[in-house]
Structures are given as C-alpha cells and as structure tokens.
Design a protein around this nucleic acid. Structure first.
Lengths: 206, 206
DNA sequence: CTATGTGAATGATTTCACAGCT
DNA sequence: AGCTGTGAAATCATTCACATAG
C-alpha cells in the first residue's frame, strides 16, 4: 500500500468519531459534505482521503454509516486489541490510567510503572504500580504493543532505549523532548508546551 | 510577516527546547545542523524556518545560543505571561493544574472550574475549584487568555460558546470532538484517541 | 574554509471540476 | 438529479545548491 500522509490518517480517525456519533443516533447514511462540515474540512478532502483505500460510497446517495465506520476501523487497524503500558505514575500517568476513554477502541492499559519506591506497590485505579526495574522481565512474560511515556524528560530516553530493546515498537511520548529510536519504531508526541506555544504565536499574529 | 505554516511554528517551539538545553549547559554557539539532528529534521529546514522571521546567524559560525533563544521566544510571543483557566477538574484537569512545567514560559494557571457540587470549593494543588456557573462573572472581573478544556465531550461545545462570548480567544481542547468557533478564535486539539489510532495505523503499515 | 540565507527545483497535499453511477 | 470518485491544476512545504559573509 502506497505511502499515506499522516494528515490523512488523522482525519480518518476524526471521521470515525463522527461516524460513531451518527451510529449512536441511528443515522444510516452520510454524505462527504456532512463529514466535512463536522470536521472543518471540505467534501473533496473527505472523498480524497477515503479514495486512497477504496470506494465505499454510493453515487447519488452517500455512505452507509455502519459500513463506512467499519471500513475506517479496519483501515486504522482497530479490529484488534492493543496492550498498553503507562510508564510514569505521576499526575498525568495516573490520570491516563483512570481515563478509560480509549478502551472502546481496543487500547487496554495493562500495566503502570514508576521508579519511586514510595509509589511502587500502591494501587492506582485498580492497577498496581510496578517497579520500573521489572519492565523487561514483565514484557518478556507478557508483551506490550504500545508504551505511553509520562516521565520527566531526563529519564525518558533511557527508558525508551530499554523498552525498544525489550521489543516495544510504538510509543506515545508526553515528555518534552525528541526521542531517538530505530527506523522501525514509531513515536507520536503529545506536548502541552508545544501546543501552548503554538497558541501563543497564533494569538499574537491573528 | 505573512502566513507561516503551523509546522514551522511547531518546529520553532521544538528548537527553543533545544536552545534552552544548550543555554543550561553553557554552550554558546550552535549550528543549524546541530539543531536539525536533535529535532529529527535537516539543516536546510532549520535555516528556512528561521529565515521567515529574519537572519539571526553568523555565516561560517552558526547561531549565538542566547540570542537565538531570545529571538525565538519573541517570535512565539513568550515575552508576556498568559492567564490560563482549566475547565474541568477531573483526573486530567487536576493533573494539569499540578503540572507546573509550562510556568517557565509564562503560562499561569489561575483558575480551575467544575460543575460538580461535590468538587466545587475543594482545593486542587492550592487552587480552589470554582463553580462553572461563575465563569462569566470571574472572567469579566479578571480576564483569561487561554482556556484548557478537559470536560466530557458532551459539555464541551456549550462551555466554549459561553467562554467565547465572555471574550476568550484561545482554547486548548482535550475533548474528543471538533469545536465550532468564530474565525478570530483559535483552537488547538490534543486528542489521545487520535494519537493512539495513528499509532495503530502505523503499526499495521510498517 | 565554514556555515548561513535564499531563490529555484522538487515533492507533497489540497482543491477543482466533471465524468460516471445510482 | 444528486453525490461519489478521481485525474488535472493549484497551492503549499521541503530540499537542493550555491553565492555570500565571517
């Protein structure tokens, strides 16, 4: 399959959110125009995004909501479940474990790690905080698909190196630095500082 | 100075992070190549990004770290402080109030709101949780620059409408939906679901 | 001799506009 | 008639390559 732009994949994920709204409301047909309006884009963009993967609509009619939702889920690889570990049991790490919003799409947080002896062994939303030193052994026993990094920046690279060596291929990084990983490992960054600074720039240059 | 790509602004914010590292380490000169390596981009990209705003380097030498840092801060509008309100005192809202990582760049969380009577009046990291019904009055009294939305998706649009009416021009949205706002209002989205789904796609199409 | 700054070239993404189904 | 699917055109972003300054 040809190289798909990241922006396209992200829009598909957005469309899926709308399709699921429509599913809940019992709407059974939707046009590219309706999806575009919701997503702040154009109908041509929606059709082009979908066209990279096939043709799922009916001319003159639009798209079947359940069918398109199911196709988009398939495209995004949401048919399976993912085993997720949260690394760092600080405020944000704990909040992520509490936040069960992504269980719906098959992302299961199965473990939570920290290095602070005061935290290790305690529970956070029914999950025991484990010792970071045991990560490799635990993963060898019971592999994980995705690691969410919510540690101080100073520790992040060392932890990623260890997790990569242990076979983890995907990271969601909250630490405020750029991680170095091999080519076959994927990192997506979530950076509050960066978003706030982009807002700051936009505010001044309106 | 006209339309700068969002990707450029985000890279500037990233470069600033590196420049601050270098400042702390007492490095006083840096090349576009060094910034590029850290940021996972190319030296030409770094120079092009900077060239939209002026020429800050010395040919044959590179950039003065403190000077470039200061210019980038200025470009991003980080010379001032921003008054930030967090809307929603759930797990993530509370974590954001605890997370003082962005104080450094002048983003001050000055208030925290919720609609749950059980939470209102309680403290979260030294900040009293206020009643969402008082938002407009509070803001009229004491304006805010940026609202961080961490409420359930079902309430988000209504809250944004109220805040926009109260004069708020910038939002950082954690809710899993696309907000509708007037043209002069800026919204940046942080969506865990979307990032995880992008990881899912990337994992399957490696 | 080194590293910036920048037009020109290339590459990627979005928009246009319409033919082709239903 | 209405709305999709898609080449072609337009726009936008990145990379190249080199003249220029220290």
């Amino acid at each position: 399959m040809r190289k798909i732009a990241d922006s396209t994949v992200r829009r598909l994920s957005l469309y899926l959110r709308f399709l699921e709204d429509f599913e809940e409301q019992g709407v059974d047909t939707v046009s590219s125009e309706a999806l575009a309006t919701r997503g702040g884009t154009t109908s041509a963009q929606v059709r082009k995004d979908l066209s990279f993967f096939g043709s799922f609509g009916k001319r003159g009619l639009g798209y079947s909501v359940p069918e398109l939702a199911s196709r988009v889920r398939e495209i995004l690889g949401l048919g399976q479940t993912y085993r997720v570990a949260v690394i760092g049991a600080g405020n944000i790490g704990a909040a992520l474990v509490h936040f069960r919003g992504f269980e719906k799409h098959g992302f299961h947080v199965i473990s939570l790690y920290d290095s602070d002896p005061k935290k290790i062994g305690r529970q956070s939303n029914g999950l025991v905080i484990r010792d970071q030193r045991d990560m490799e052994d635990d993963i060898a026993q019971d592999p994980i698909d995705i690691a969410i990094l919510v540690t101080p920046a100073s520790q992040a690279q060392k932890l990623v190196d260890r997790l990569v060596k242990a076979g983890v291929k995907a990271f969601l990084n909250f630490a405020a630095l750029q991680l170095r990983v091999p080519d076959d490992v994927i990192v997506k960054n979530v950076s509050l500082a960066l978003e706030l600074e982009a807002l700051s720039y936009a505010l001044r240059n309106r």
